[in-house]
Design a protein around this nucleic acid. Structure first.
Ligand code: ZN
Ligand code: ZN
Ligand code: ZN
Ligand code: ZN
Lengths: 132, 132
DNA sequence: CAATTGATGTAATAACATAACATATTGAAT
DNA sequence: ATTCAATATGTTATGTTATTACATCAATTG
């Protein structure tokens, strides 16, 4: 997925996510953009939809939040499965991918004749700093 | 986690999930239990909280739904990571685990000094019947 | 019998997400 | 330049998921 020029709203939402320390909920993004004219959740959700499609933002299903991709331009990223480690204390997110994990999961679903579309791997826990 | 005797509400919620074809949302469970005296979401959420704790029910983060464990009594289940393949057409869920996937993910987080607490692996797609 | 603990009932509210409809902007194609 | 289609945006309302707060009830125990 090549990323086209972002529209005004898409740029605003993306900038907020890039500058954020960690993942943000759609409504938190909305609040941060009220000064820029945002009034309704749909303005955020519509921008997020595109940013997710372009692969520059990820959705963290287990915490209903969104985060800017930590590996922009990473090619293997576009087809490989991405995994996240999410600190439940400070919110910090680490993003990584592992081909062996991909292969094992895809081999399993293939064996079941299941056609995978989108895979979520999220590990919640404590980062080094917060576990200390 | 050894499963204690379920309370009335826990049993009702668990029975609904066991008899269901696929995952159910909390509010769907609530509707199915109105005849049994359920009136409020909290009655469902409180029962689910315990059932999740006992490991007899799983929460599917990516679809905000709950499903009865497909491998009750499976020992490796209690410490291994469980993965789900979820058909986006018919809702059918397959549950499995793979030690190699566990090991790779846990090795990675250990390398980051991250302390994992709960891991989610969910593959959305189409089951064999629905892909045909 | 208190006193504690865990379970339940109920109402209200918070948090997350989408539907429906109107308007505006962009970028071809003629 | 005008028309047309496609995309983006604005706005209101509503739908869906989850929790807070507080009262009551039941079982256990000292
Ligand atoms: Zn990424
Ligand atoms: Zn942390
Ligand atoms: Zn299970
Ligand atoms: Zn199916």
């Amino acid at each position: 997925m090549t990323t086209p020029q972002l529209t005004k709203n898409q740029s605003l939402v993306f900038d907020v996510l890039e500058k954020a320390e960690g993942p943000l909920s759609a409504y938190t993004i909305l609040d941060k953009l009220r000064d820029h004219g945002f009034r309704a959740p749909l303005q955020v959700y519509r921008a997020l939809e595109k940013l997710l499609e372009y692969g520059v933002v990820h959705r963290l299903e287990s915490i209903n939040s969104f985060v800017a991709c930590a590996h922009p331009g990473d090619d293997c990223h576009s087809h490989g499965i991405v995994a996240f480690a999410i600190c439940e204390s400070c919110g910090q997110v680490m993003e990584f991918h592992d081909h062996e994990v991909d292969h094992r999961l895809m081999a399993w679903v293939r064996g079941q004749k299941f056609k995978p579309a989108k895979t979520t791997i999220e590990i919640r826990g404590l980062c080094e700093a917060c576990a200390a």
